[in-house]
Design a protein around this nucleic acid. Sequence first.
DNA 1: GGGGGGATACCATGTTTTGGGTATTGAGAA
DNA 2: TTCTCAATACCCAAAACATGGTATCCCCCC
Lengths: 211, 211
Amino acid sequence: MIKVAIFEDNRSLREGLAAMIGGTAEFECVGAFPNCNNLLKNITQAKPDVVLMDIEMPGINGIEAVAIIKEEFPEMKILMETIFDDDEKIFNSICAGAEGYILKHTPPAEIMEAIKEIHEGGSPMTPSIANRVLKMVKTKPEIGHKESFDLTDREKEILTCLVKGMSYKMVADACFISIETVNVHVKNIYRKLQVHSKSEAVIKAIKGRIV
Amino acid sequence: MIKVAIFEDNRSLREGLAAMIGGTAEFECVGAFPNCNNLLKNITQAKPDVVLMDIEMPGINGIEAVAIIKEEFPEMKILMETIFDDDEKIFNSICAGAEGYILKHTPPAEIMEAIKEIHEGGSPMTPSIANRVLKMVKTKPEIGHKESFDLTDREKEILTCLVKGMSYKMVADACFISIETVNVHVKNIYRKLQVHSKSEAVIKAIKGRIV
DNA sequence: GGGGGGATACCATGTTTTGGGTATTGAGAA
DNA sequence: TTCTCAATACCCAAAACATGGTATCCCCCC
């Protein structure tokens, strides 16, 4: 029995979804809300396994809502629902922590299927969405490589600090070592990465996905 | 009738898949090959709609094969199949152009389902793969935000140079201006970005997708 | 029990960067 | 026209960084 909560401002759509979910043996609709004004209260009371979240909503929008829910209940699965499939929304939803993303014109049977999949740990996506997600990954050719450069754990730690924009002094404080030691580590990092400045190292770390 | 070609070095698996696909009304197996030695020839003759491609193969591996196929037949759908779900392989497969990615332990019925989905323009992925893909997207904040910071064109140009790891001197040479002018621009960039070092600026530029 | 490597620390020196000035020129707005 | 602003250029001092050393400690492995 998968417990589902719905956030959807369109009344007929909301009631339709609730009826559909409530009318199935596998699912239980534990709440259907027109907005996110009482988001955490609603969620806390309903205790759903899966949240069906409309993106376009007055007041707190769906993407903000995802962030709020995930902050409090990270294990809760969230399936975004929208009429538009624009990259910005998809991207921001994913970043906020949503597991799935479907378009509203998706037939009911597939919505049910998606809820089941997301509950099982999958990431259901409308084909057009999936394609856009793949494109997003493609535009970042650097994740691949993952050249190791044989950095030691400590060196990776230092490098991570540098990627946060810290100065030697800040790194020293953060790692509880002297500035001189930071200096030594940085020297070794430069040698292994074959660079000669902090920014080069930072760039290589980000692009080469070392950190 | 979806025409499917199989590339899989394990004989029993290959024959099993071929039998399964051939035994269904919706699918037709137009070829089953143990390696990619005659890749283009095989593909040209078989003319499949969907290619089922094993990643781990002697000789030309599955990822290289995808790139080759996509080069010649960009509209052909390719479903990757593997025993491992490591990020590197997933990422490289996606970059090479594969539309789907499933693990070998996926039950036959779901493999058939995935073939149908990929043929319809979807991107079927094993849940664990989908999760990794979403994580890859998350590490890539560039599509979102896009804060402008009101940089002038020249300043963006300078910043772009910095993001390439260049020193002031190199920027000066590249932009045909004096080092002093670079200095002035950098100062202005720092003020607008509210940072106080080159690496901070570089980081903000990359993450904020300014460049 | 010695050798290698990683982490620590310090010294010295030169270069680069940072942040504070001032000043000229040309384009476009008031 | 005058004024603002981007772009150019220069000066200077302090801070941060880059690069070359040496040296100690500890752990693991041979």
